[in-house]
Amino acid sequence: MSVQIRLTQGPLATWPDTPYAQGSGARIVFDGVVRPTEDGEKIQGLHYEAYRPMAEQQLEIIGQELLETHGLIAMDIEHSIGLVPNYKCSFRLVIDSKHRKEGLAAMDEFINRLKQDVPIWKSAK
């Protein structure tokens, strides 16, 4: 069971073709993509600011907790910092689990917790 966390400068690259975690029967990949508008206004992109040490710590805490409670096998969490243009990926969550059910449930819960407790802020550009 493992949780990987990265805060990456700029847009995230496409997900590489990594092997599935041992014992997994499902992999769910969620990409958060920057939309062309924000609050109805056209934008060029989003700038992300993080309170980096705490953001990394909170991502780790949430990841470890959901790994346990949902019985997952592996999680890979990556979030951008800095400027991310429209239609580029700024957040990716990859979950390997034995079955899809726990993976889908954990995906939703993680993102809700991220939007509540992880000190990252976006501003439109």
Partner: peptide, 10 residues
């Protein structure tokens, strides 16, 4: 000590 306002990551 830090002030953590409403966050907006993800």
């Amino acid at each position: 000590t830090a002030l953590i306002t409403m966050v907006s990551g993800g």
